[in-house]
Amino acid sequence: MFHKVQKVKALPNFILKVDFINGICKYYDVKPLLEIWQPFKALKYTNGLFNLVKVDVGGYGISWNDDLDLSCDELWENGYSESL
């Protein structure tokens, strides 16, 4: 089952606020990805890139550019309901 993304907002400290079309809001911490996946390091070292996050067409995920994206399922399953 897809939990489509309606809106995404970049917050300080590499946190994303993700609003899903079912009305649920979750927060997703991108920091662990910065250490695990080489392409995600660009979010840390490219000034302003993290803030360019957008919802992909159809709401099936989010992306920053052609190389950096996350699926709606990843955001749903590993997001949390309260802000840190």
Rank of each mutant, 00 (worst) to 15 (best):
F50E: 01
E77C: 13
W37I: 02
A42W: 02
D66G: 07
G59R: 13
W76M: 10
D67Q: 10
Y80D: 14
E35D: 13
K54R: 15
H3M: 08
N22Q: 05
E82H: 12
L75K: 02
Y60A: 03
T46P: 00
F14W: 09
T46L: 08
K26G: 10
Q6P: 00
S71W: 11
Y80G: 14
H3V: 04
Y60V: 08
G23V: 01
S81N: 15
E35I: 06
I21G: 04
Y60R: 13
V57C: 05
Y80P: 03
V5N: 08
H3F: 09
Y45Q: 09
K54I: 04
L11W: 07
P12N: 10
N51E: 02
I24D: 04
N47K: 15
P12C: 07
L84T: 14
P32G: 14
L33H: 12
L43S: 02
G79Q: 13
F40H: 05
G48T: 11
E82S: 12
Q38E: 09
G48R: 15
E35Q: 12
L75F: 03
K26D: 08
F2C: 05
C25G: 02
C72W: 01
L49Q: 06
L43G: 00
N22F: 01
L33N: 12
L75G: 01
L34D: 04
K41H: 02
K4Y: 02
K54Y: 06
E77Q: 15
K4W: 01
Y80R: 15
Y60S: 08
K7E: 07
W37Y: 11
V55A: 07
K4R: 15
F50Y: 08
G59H: 10
D29F: 12
I21E: 10
G48S: 06
W37S: 06
L68K: 02
P12Y: 13
E82W: 07
C72I: 07
A42F: 06
N22I: 00
Y28S: 09
N22P: 00
L43I: 00
F50A: 04
V5G: 03
Y80S: 12
K17P: 01
F40P: 01
V55F: 04
D67C: 10
L70Q: 14
V55W: 04
K26Y: 06
L52A: 11
L43A: 01
N51I: 01
F14M: 13
V30F: 05
N47M: 11
Q38F: 03
F40C: 01
L52I: 00
F14D: 08
S63A: 05
N13A: 12
K31D: 11
L70V: 06
P12V: 11
C72R: 01
S63V: 02
K17T: 02
T46E: 04
Y80V: 09
E35T: 10
Q38P: 03
D67W: 04
N78K: 15
L34H: 12
L16D: 08
Q38V: 04
Y80M: 07
V30T: 07
D66F: 04
P39M: 08
I36E: 15
C25M: 11
L16N: 12
W37R: 11
N78M: 14
K7L: 05
I15D: 01
E74C: 07
G59W: 10
V57W: 04
V18N: 00
I21L: 10
F50R: 13
D69W: 10
E82V: 03
N78L: 14
D67F: 04
